[in-house]
Amino acid sequence: MDDFELHLTHALRRQEAPAGFADRVLLAARARRQRRWGWLAAASLALMILPAGYAYHVHTERQRAEAQLRLALSITSGKLNLAFKHLNAEPEQP
């Protein structure tokens, strides 16, 4: 057996895992699994919240647009009627 083979045998010899190694690996794996579930929960929540938020935004925009339209039409028809009223009225006395 030459030096190389000796080094190789020494390097590949069976070694016992340090104390608590298996526990630490299992703990890390569990933590990683928990983190993944956390991300999944956050993503699911975001997927639920985002459309709801968008729907609320669209709803408020629609309400605003409707209120603006009704106000615009009421102002316009009011002013037109003011003109029509004067057109149909008798001339004012000086």
């Binding site: 009704r70 009421s74 102002i75 002013k79 009627n81 003011l82 009223k85």
Partner: peptide, 10 residues
């Protein structure tokens, strides 16, 4: 004016 929720202003 005065219809369909449009208030009567005049």
């Amino acid at each position: 004016e005065g219809k369909m929720g449009i208030p009567r202003l005049s």
